[in-house]
Design a protein around this nucleic acid. Structure first.
Lengths: 124, 124
DNA sequence: ATACATAGTCTACAACCGTAGACATAAAGC
DNA sequence: GCTTTATGTCTACGGTTGTAGACTATGTAT
């Protein structure tokens, strides 16, 4: 499976819209994001060029569609973020987040449950 | 407390070196990072200009020093990353990381311990 | 004092990013 | 068939980023 290309901030906002509902035309995206249509078109071209999205032409309309799942892209971004800010190691990052951003009791319970579930899958 | 300015990838690598040992001269940093000295100097100027670091001139040498702790910067970066990629919510992100990046048994244990400790401090 | 070395400042430059105008093309309605 | 309208493509432009050469100023050694 190919890995997703780098996606900039503004491009992410477009990807997000598409992940919610696909496929969409440039006009539909512009309406939803309340952005200048021309700007959206530029971002769409760039995303197409870097093969983050594709499109099908049906009659007069171009329908855009992502070529990667949100999860794939999140995974990828997390990786590079991790490398940049936390030197690549996950644990310090999670520690930091957990310590720093106060989580509610409920969230903590959920995370613990998650960790229990993962226990079986984790590699030793 | 002022918030840290945006720091680019390359600049992070300099900050990292400084956080490990401060203060340092540009030459020392260039040596450690094995980068072209001129490039380091540029980054240092930019970091000074955006007030991420400061320096003291002692005799012939300029000693650079960070103006923010690593934790502060990590916090800041985590925030913007979170907003961009996970729509600002922490839990999905941690879930994603925990599910996706396989953690060792040991790491899982450590995280659980961390969560227990945090229980008391977390807000309800 | 004079020359050498060191370290900051100015300048540059290509690539990328956010933003968007101008232009072309093609479908659709009249 | 011709005009309107929608939609992609080309071009642009200022700002940032990574990279680094050239110039300058100032200690340092002789």
């Amino acid at each position: 499976m190919k890995k997703p290309p780098p996606i900039t901030d503004s491009e992410w906002s477009i990807m997000k819209v598409l992940w919610k509902k696909q496929p969409l035309t440039s006009t539909q995206i512009a309406t939803q994001t309340k952005s200048h249509p021309q700007t959206i078109k530029t971002f769409l071209s760039r995303l197409v060029k870097k093969k983050a999205i594709g499109y099908e032409k049906t009659g007069r309309s171009f329908y855009y569609r992502t070529l990667f799942s949100e999860k794939e892209c999140q995974r990828h971004e997390s990786r590079s973020f991790l490398n940049r800010v936390f030197g690549g190691s996950l644990r310090p990052m999670i520690s930091h987040l957990v310590e720093d951003e106060s989580l509610s009791q409920r969230e903590i319970q959920e995370l613990k449950a998650l960790l229990n579930k993962t226990s079986r899958g984790g590699k030793e």
